[in-house]
């Protein structure tokens, strides 16, 4: 396996003091040499202290700006630090760090690797409305990109340098969804899915409280439309 000192694991965290230590320790156990960056999204609890004492590098946003902005901050850190392979992992313990390795291996033949909880054997309890929304926008994203898309909302992903340089400037401020998948495809970045297992949150309330499904569907359609209407994004020439 290649030297992993060029690997950065980004963990966006908002009030995750309870789960963060375990997540960081498990990540360290799975990826000994990777640098672990916690982006503290304006937490009011001891998220930053916990992360620091667990040995992670911490970047603290001065106020809560939302998941997408926290992730983008991590991408900017990666660009500044010239990391070559970047993994995105939730701070709430849902993503099993054992799958960081397989995600990184997937980067050998694509720019973005998305961990899908629906490709594996495990089954998940997801509310029917949410499942319908995921299926609908997964199908739309699959149709528009021509790729196999089974889990559009997965935040468990790996990116190569090219993808991160692009996303550091263009990542949407909201949760990743079909529009992000389409944006990546339009930028000319290749992506694929690999099976991962996700767990129930270790503790606390979930980061995503399912918004009114009507608003969600409307917003998502609009985001996809806007993504398509915008000029094709340009990648760095080098």
């Amino acid at each position: 396996m290649a030297d992993s000192s060029d690997v950065l694991v980004i963990i966006p965290a908002f009030n995750e003091e309870k789960n963060l230590r375990i997540v960081i320790e498990e990540t360290r156990a799975a990826q000994m040499h990777a640098r672990i960056l916690v982006v503290d999204d304006g937490s009011s609890d001891r998220t930053a202290e916990v992360a620091r004492s667990a040995g992670a590098t911490v970047v603290s946003l001065p106020f809560n700006l939302g998941y997408g902005v926290a992730v983008q901050t991590g991408f900017r850190f990666a660009v500044r630090g010239r990391f070559r392979r970047i993994v995105l992992l939730d701070g709430d313990g849902q993503h099993d760090p054992r799958f960081v390795g397989p995600l990184l291996e997937g980067l050998e033949d694509s720019d973005v690797v998305r961990g899908s909880r629906f490709l594996g054997a495990a089954r998940y309890r997801i509310p029917a409305t949410r499942r319908m929304g995921m299926a609908l926008f997964g199908a739309i994203a699959g149709f528009l990109t021509g790729d196999r898309v089974t889990d559009v909302t997965s935040g468990f992903q790996a990116f190569d340098e090219r993808a991160v340089r692009f996303l550091a400037e263009n990542y949407p401020s909201d949760y990743p969804d079909a529009d992000t998948v389409i944006l990546i495809k339009r930028a000319g970045l290749s992506s694929r899915e690999i099976p991962v297992e996700m767990r129930e949150r270790l503790s606390g309330t979930p980061m995503v409280s399912w918004p009114g499904s009507f608003y969600y569907v409307f917003k998502m359609c609009l985001s996809i439309l806007v993504t398509l209407l915008r000029e094709k994004p340009v990648l760095d020439p080098d």
């Binding site: 590098t57 603290s60 946003l61 700006l65 902005v69 901050t73 900017r76 500044r80």
Partner: peptide
């Protein structure tokens, strides 16, 4: 504001 906050966070680190 978003860009400023990100930059401030990165610079503080």
């Amino acid at each position: 504001v978003k860009k400023l906050a990100q930059q401030a966070a990165l610079l503080t680190e």
